[in-house]
Design a protein around this nucleic acid. Structure first.
Lengths: 337, 337
DNA sequence: GCTTTTAGGATTAACGTTATCCCAATGAGC
DNA sequence: GCTCATTGGGATAACGTTAATCCTAAAAGC
């Protein structure tokens, strides 16, 4: 059976209390005593029962992570940063996926609250009244990674969806493209809203109007994007550039373009968004908007832990700058730089 | 503050015990009472304190997942299956990465034990005396997903590394290839050992000997594989096929081949292993050995939970059959089929 | 009418920690 | 030699839940 403080107490004839304090490095315990206790603890292979500790202290050193879409490597890459940062700050991660469903998100949060997590990092849906109410009633720190929630302004770490998308479209308009196909992302996700807004804003700034026929929606996944672009091509849509909600969408689009004998980038230029790790190894390698995913995860954890440790700390939206990456799905390098 | 059973007890004037039992559906509580209590609990927004429950019952309904390499999508895909299966069986996941370090693996397990997980799914290193001792002393169920540990025979769910690799090499030898370059994977991982053994065995069966100059080692990642193959090409190594430890290695190899003007598959055929989700979208799309990753994860969890619920259950190695997938990095389809 | 059964619920004691309060011994200050 | 800190450690009470045991009416059996 597993060793408890009591067992060390019995073996050393110090009280349980003293053993506990010795192992936690309480200065009130003499060096000699501490050493004897620590040695005995190691000898017995003592592993502290974290559950009991959490119960007593009401501090779990655990961060609940509510991820959105497990089939998108973007989240995996951010979560990698989260896990690493959490480990460095001596916290554990409890991970749940919502598959972008508002209800799953609520359930996940309740489950995590029940497990007494100290804080939450969430990839939330954009607009849901019940979720909004839940977040407003939350008594532990929470942060939104790379996304916004309608109605909650200050809990986000954003990576410039609007600006990033403006830059892409601006670049293409600069190069003379006037028929740009846009494949948008999943419903009710701020990234979709913001990137679409960026797309539109870039046109607006030049007094131009995007062609509604060249605006496709998608689930944000490869297969759906592939199907949607096939459909558009079958309907005879003409365009010289495809701007995609994310890299997965771009991968599906590339497949469709290839199968429909559209040469990339000669006839059609393609942009993704997110700059996944694999995108540089596609052929042609994918031009994209780089989002520092690992940094986003790290930042989220560091900021969250700061909030956990200082409940008075004020929330404010943090912003990371995105950066265009030009590869083989676009011709030439950035004309500006 | 958060609502406890006590609060519901106060509000309904039933005892804490009755409230607890009513919420857990104990048959000894009358329907009327149960309903009143449940309604009040919902009204108050009661969220059970799982920590206290775990403390009392010594059952956490949590599975510790010790993953190996967070930068390899293979694990992400398996963990996806793990998470889904766990959720269906009403369990949570506690996830830690080891980055293939034996010591991290031990630390991860100790941390998870401290958190009172009910069982472990581990992607372990192959051969480490301290880890072996740790596993032997473990008092909770544990399973190795897709890997073996030297010295522990029955706790694995394997996916035919040896056979899969034999099949690949056999196929190539059938087609007349005699100069096959093999890029092996990371040290001290059973997959590396077994796939290499498969490679050798395929030669052995024909009374052939692989050329030691055509045997490269790698970390199992894109960049390293890319560098190693570049080096081999610079040294004038000649070969007509490259068999890779996994798909990431294959991606790096493809990049090197492309940059060195080796046409794939005309001059060089390439095989990966794992069949990552992205591999079908590479260009050329990658021929590989499909490992049912999601199923592996699901199976691991289902089997683990079976062990948790029946401590007497015997361990036995489970085996999943791999399947060759022929795509554009190999010429023709499978000659046999 | 009395006892026995049973439904329905209350009391109480854990689970392993940690925090609060307490005490004994030692030594310093006068 | 007395007081008073200081040091080092012990005793005890929580944390919120659940399990084991116990209680009490009312119904049922004779």
């Amino acid at each position: 059976m597993s060793i408890r403080l009591k067992d060390i107490s019995d073996a050393t004839s110090f009280s349980v209390n003293t053993v506990s304090r010795a192992l936690r490095g309480d200065p009130r315990i003499s060096e000699a005593t501490r050493e004897a206790i620590v040695r005995k603890a190691e000898e017995l292979g003592y592993i502290p029962n974290a559950i009991a500790g959490i119960m007593r202290t009401n501090r779990s050193r655990t961060i609940g992570v509510v991820s959105a879409d497990s089939s998108n490597p973007f989240f995996a890459e951010v979560i990698l940063g989260i896990e690493e940062a959490a480990r460095k700050l001596d916290h554990s991660i409890l991970l749940i996926n919502t598959e972008e469903k508002a209800e799953n998100e609520r359930e996940a949060i309740k489950l995590l609250l029940g497990r007494q997590v100290d804080g939450l990092v969430v990839f939330p849906v954009y607009d849901d009244p019940a979720n909004l109410a839940l977040y407003r009633s939350l008594e532990i720190p929470f942060l939104f990674a790379g996304r916004r929630v309608r109605g909650i302004e200050d809990h986000s770490i954003l990576h410039g969806d609007v600006e990033g998308q403006i830059e892409v479209v601006d670049h293409l308009l600069d190069k003379g493209h006037r028929k740009i196909l846009y494949i948008a992302g999943p419903e009710n996700v701020s990234n979709t809203v913001d990137r679409l807004e960026g797309f539109r804003e870039a046109y607006r700034r030049r007094g131009l109007e995007p062609d509604p026929d060249l605006l496709l929606s998608s689930s944000g996944h490869i297969e759906d994007s592939y199907a949607k672009l096939n459909l558009a091509l079958n309907r005879g849509r003409e365009f010289s550039a495809v701007v995609c909600f994310n890299d997965l969408v771009a991968i599906g689009a590339l497949k469709s373009l290839f199968e429909n004998d559209r040469s990339v980038p000669r006839e059609v230029e393609v942009f993704g968004f997110d700059n996944l790790a694999i995108s540089q190894f596609l052929r042609p390698s994918l031009s994209s908007v780089d989002v520092p995913k690992s940094r986003l995860g790290r930042l989220a954890v560091e900021e969250l832990v700061a909030h956990i440790e200082d409940p008075e700390r004020e929330y404010r939206t943090l912003r990371i700058k995105p950066r265009l990456v030009f590869r083989e799905t676009t011709s030439d390098a950035n004309p500006q730089s």
